[in-house]
Design a protein around this nucleic acid. Sequence first.
DNA 1: AATTTAAAACTGGTCAGACCAGTTGGTTAT
DNA 2: ATAACCAACTGGTCTGACCAGTTTTAAATT
Lengths: 252, 252
Amino acid sequence: MGISQEISYRLEQLILDGGLAPDQKIPSERQLAERMGVSRAIIREALHELQGRGVIDTFHGKGSFVASIVPATRDLDESGPLMHLFAGHPRTMYDLLEVREQLEGQAAFLAAQRATSMDRHRLTKAFRILEETDPLSNAKPDHGFHQAIVEASHNPILVHVLKGLKNMMLLSVQASVANLNPREAMRHSIMKQHRRIYKAILAGKPAAARKAAIDHVRFVADSMRDLESQGAEVIRMPLDAKHSNSGVTPSA
Amino acid sequence: MGISQEISYRLEQLILDGGLAPDQKIPSERQLAERMGVSRAIIREALHELQGRGVIDTFHGKGSFVASIVPATRDLDESGPLMHLFAGHPRTMYDLLEVREQLEGQAAFLAAQRATSMDRHRLTKAFRILEETDPLSNAKPDHGFHQAIVEASHNPILVHVLKGLKNMMLLSVQASVANLNPREAMRHSIMKQHRRIYKAILAGKPAAARKAAIDHVRFVADSMRDLESQGAEVIRMPLDAKHSNSGVTPSA
DNA sequence: AATTTAAAACTGGTCAGACCAGTTGGTTAT
DNA sequence: ATAACCAACTGGTCTGACCAGTTTTAAATT
């Protein structure tokens, strides 16, 4: 074991021992370096390791903080530690949609055959809000609707996985639906798709619900693809050299 | 995000997408530094992050290597509390399978339409090993086969999600397939299913591949359900730190 | 020639000091 | 009081050197 490992171990120990509580600030790299009698490079390497393990989060100019153990279901604030990794890759958006397609489909399927009366009530409520809002200017209702569906599936794993994917989604693109071209035809299509999903679930038709959900996601994906081919800037990709610190700021 | 993160993303993507296979050596730090146009310090920090996530292992004087799949990656450790919540609840197993069903299906689908010649080669290799081994006494070949499929899908997100699910799987039950009742009929069924998946992918028939994969997972799930109803002890929950191996040895 | 040995030539590990780039808070000028 | 500004934080990156294992190469010995 190198010194770097030892340091990360000691830091981790420090955190776990209660010396440092979640969201608490960690001493600066220079301080740690001096206090532990080691170069700053080592400290940085150790911190990166902890960062990789999701133990801490680091912010330029502010410092490093102990990661909160539980994401706390906040809106778009934080996502899984590992999730950040894929975000920013150009292809990631479509990779995500390919996975989401199936999962949303399965969620709708299960919802259709498992939704309780309370689920149906919540779903209806979410759907009404959705219908009353412009789906292209506000993504939240859309969010709520899909969330209601997956929760009605009564599969915690599914809920968890989709939540993770949705977080990644937000990191890859500002807001999937919101960025779509506000053409009237498209707006109408999306509403129609939502209604189709909703009705299928309420009617207790799993197969139909699945198909409707899959078609919906696929439609969104295709729309984005079209937009992109038209030169619209939907996807950010800071991969190569002159990356310009694009897009999503955690605190905003 | 800093350059350091970007580098680790790029490396990660490279590894997950099959550019670098497990146990394969990663270029030296100095090489990477020059090739990616950054300082060696950055490379080291990026590597430490991957190291923290268990993606790679580093040895003084030798180099860094892609970690073998086996070691308990802290991947979905983000769901730490979640894990503890889920594990122990028998239903979790089936929740997992419900999700996996779709994902494996999608993986097979994509593999069928995207697999390169190298993918096919790896898949074939994995399949041969699978056929030569008793699927009920050793879960590793099964693992390898499914892994080869999902990697051939060329969707890093899918790879990641399925890996996470698989980890949760291992926590819920020692070894899904391995614990099945070694009835001759079942053994034959499973082999047949594997072959069906394999052929569909090689033949480039996405729809058929998906169906085969879904049927396979569903079959396993049903088998477990049957077993459980017969009073067999299928579901275990080892999550505790101490008890190392009481009962079934994962044949490590 | 075959074998042993020693020396390059790798690899990662650590250090030092410098400079860039965000963030923050206090001081000053308005 | 408010705005503008500057100084002192914070992390981010670069450079080049040197130490410490490992492997390869070439010389020395048998």
